[in-house]
Amino acid sequence: MAKTEIRVGGLGGQGVILCGSIIGKAAALHDGKHATLIQAFGPEARGSACSAQVTVSDAVIGYPYVKQADILILMSPDAYQQFIPSLKPNGLLLYESDLIKIGHDLPAGARALGIPATRFAEELGRRLVLNIVMTGFFAGTTDIVKAEAVEKSVLESVPKGTEELNLKAFRKGLEYGRSLAAKAA
């Protein structure tokens, strides 16, 4: 049974939960897998810590919390500080490279791939779509969920009228991710 535990972390307002939701929805509705999404639910508001826990599996998921992550998708330095200890050895860190500086605290054997997602989003015209760039980056650097499934999920999940911008953001992250993955291989 293949099971992947993913944590998305960042600041409230960065679209952290939506990023997790898009990945979960892609797996559960468009890729024939089981998926659960749990959101860290507290008094957080815009600008404070925020995270989503996504589990993707071939089988029914019992325990829905992510304690040790196979994949971390991080968008803020605070989230990095908070969650990097929970990355599994041999895990994968996907991070916003203009905002997060990788320290020596990366677990042994873990891989880290960065993307200047905020800058890319700004170049596309709206900083707001950085989470969709990160989502594309996830789809480009992993094979947990098919990229087409994630793309479909992006289009279903974003507000009407913003599909084109979000599609561009997704593809930007996807291509950047694929080029990094190809280089690493």
Partner: peptide, 10 residues
């Protein structure tokens, strides 16, 4: 309960 209420699934 809170988990079933806030957990998202198919």
């Amino acid at each position: 309960d809170e988990v079933v209420g806030h957990m998202t699934e198919r």
